[in-house]
Write a protein that binds this DNA or RNA. Structure first.
Lengths: 245, 245
DNA sequence: CGATCGTTTGATCCGCATCAAGATAGGTGG
DNA sequence: CCACCTATCTTGATGCGGATCAAACGATCG
């Protein structure tokens, strides 16, 4: 587990992207780089929280198991995103979800004791943690709202647009970064339902054939991603939502 | 707007309950006490975030409006809970929901500038904010999971148990602290559906007649509240969930 | 070449929303 | 005191969306 120097943090909404250079140095010096091959588990639901992670490359899937054995995917995380930011300062020290590498993944690991100590010593570190947590909370809120109000077709449309932006892909044509079953699990519908939504997506300019996706009529897709679907009229999901009225 | 000395923070999971005495003093000295009568609006969705609030007494409802005019209640907050904790440190300075007094409410208000400054000066204040945010995030996560997996009957059962604990009521018999339409809006179902779930609730020992509720067979209700339904076998919603198998 | 995985497609069922019509209670004015 | 009204809630009938069960298809792999 050697240290790495060439870590890139591309995600503009990430925890670290936003740090001043001094704090970045502090963190990069302390962080131990770890490699997880595809399908390797980073931690399991119920494990005690020992580390804070920042993803350097690859994609991590968070999911939990319901008592009846059903997997619910709560998020996909990419380079620059952090894991266990909420867990560090909460009362329970148990992981509330599994984390598994979707593809080959490298992360920086920090012990939670060190991070707590450092947050106490450097206010700017604490502030950045606060900002990261705030954003997570906001995102969860809007997502909770969306999920309860949107149909399977709308959810699929949103997901594809978000995935395109998140992974920096070309809307004019790209390959799905993960299985369709994972996508279904992420948007909270069954595989069969997701499958049936593709013909309907085609009608509104989203073509999905095998792994290949085309998002037509959306040159400025970044502005169209629907974190706040309900509010922004450029959003495709918004249009779908109101097509019927 | 006079200052108040006799503020009680009963909620054990609240932001302030957990502060050391010194920090409590700092906050209580700065906080301005405000009174909001029943139905008065604290702030509206889209307003710019100017203050951080801690509830001294009463109940506040958070909700947002969908484009088609439907109200979605995201939370009820009671004495000791805080408002806008996530908003203070996030990029957007817009309120993402309305806040309205369910009954007569008193709050302590702090300007966000002051709180940011104070969090920078006193690490323990920053830590308590981190802890509060962490907890909020965790709660949102489990709730998002629950909502997608639970039926209307299960959601109603959960809500009644939580409400009982949250408001410190007697499970052997209490009156609903709010309208049934608000409850329906909170658990994300229509009034009619909530209404139809009451007969089914009776079968599992939850009696609802008009405003009066009895939670039978649950002497230790606090242990039964289902923040983590999926995991705890004592939880009534867990039992409902698995009654069919 | 069969075997397994991921996906599609079809048939059916169930839960919740919707629309519509009472029911009950609290409040107001005559 | 009664008639009326509105808010809140209940009950019934119907329709739709998504889950479930089941079968088949194509691709990859040993």
């Amino acid at each position: 587990m050697n240290r790495t120097a060439n870590v890139s943090f591309t995600n503009t909404t990430s925890l670290l992207s936003d740090f001043a250079e001094i704090e970045k140095d502090i963190l990069l010096k302390e962080g131990r780089s770890h490699f997880y091959p595809r399908k390797k588990i980073l931690f399991r639901q119920g494990d005690s929280v020992t580390h804070f992670y920042v993803i350097s490359s690859g994609t991590v899937r968070l999911f939990y198991e319901t008592p009846d054995g059903c997997e619910v995917t709560t998020d996909f995380l990419v380079a620059g995103d952090s894991l266990c930011s909420a867990e560090i300062f909460s009362f329970s020290d148990e992981q509330c979800s599994h984390a598994v590498a979707v593809n080959d993944v490298t992360v920086l690991k920090f012990s939670i004791e060190w991070l707590r100590k450092t947050a106490g010593r450097y206010p700017s570190v604490a502030f950045n943690l606060l900002a990261a947590l705030s954003q997570q909370t906001q995102q969860l809120k809007t997502e909770a709202g969306n999920n309860s109000m949107m149909s399977a077709v709308q959810l699929a449309a949103c997901f594809l647009q978000k995935a395109c932006v998140l992974h920096g892909l070309d809307p004019a044509g790209f390959n799905l970064p993960y299985n369709k079953s994972l996508i279904a699990s992420r948007i909270g519908v069954k595989m069969e339902t997701l499958s049936r939504s593709f013909p309907k997506l085609k009608e509104i300019g989203i073509t999905v054939e095998d792994r290949h996706v085309v998002l037509a009529d959306l040159p400025n897709i970044k502005q169209n991603v629907c974190d706040h679907c309900s509010g922004t009229e450029q959003c495709r999901a918004y249009k779908i939502l109101h097509a019927k009225n």
